[in-house]
Amino acid sequence: MFIPGPFLALVTFPGVIVHEFAHQLFCRIFGVAIFEVKYFQMANPVGYVKHEPVRNPVHQLLIGTGPFIINTLIALLIAFPAAIPVFMFNEGTILDYLLLYLGLSIGMHAFPSTGDANVLWQTLWHGEQVPLWLKIITVPIVGLIYLGAIGSFFWLDLIYGMGVAFGLPVLIVQFCA
């Protein structure tokens, strides 16, 4: 079933906000000037952060991949206390389901966008004074982002979000047992 990106993003808008917030957070951590942040809009792209070109290319790598780290962690944090009562004990309240929805939508938007991949590629692969090791690790990262983008046609982003919000908490409990 094909659902246009903006409509899917509308349903899962908390994830878009956290995604953009993650870019913003890493800009702030590295002292990179931000000119505009759009947390959500019903257009393509559904959100963006406009910032200056970075001085340290490693910062670009982290700003670009920040949503993957931040969205995944926040999705897990939010969904964890709700996933155990719902999936292990069938005792979820409406608040648990709200947390699970938030966890799922945030987890779904963990993958950096192809726009993020383009910036990474331009800055790190084509950039001057970028160390070789950074160029080398940029290739698989950008490759994975594109694979993720292709995978989203097959609901890979949804599967990832479900894995983080629904599956991972149960796996953590299993690991602790």
């Binding site: 944090l77 939010i78 964890f80 206390p81 709700a82 155990i84 009562p85 292990m88 004990f89 608040l95 648990d96 709200l98 947390l99 938030l102 149960v170 409990v173 299993q174 602790c176 047992a177």
Partner: peptide, 28 residues
Amino acid sequence: GVGVILLVAIFRLPGYFQAGVGYMKGKK
């Protein structure tokens, strides 16, 4: 707002977590 809901959920978590770990230990 989400933080408040999360706090409520986290408050209940230890009981569920302990029971979940116990159940999984039983299954193992």
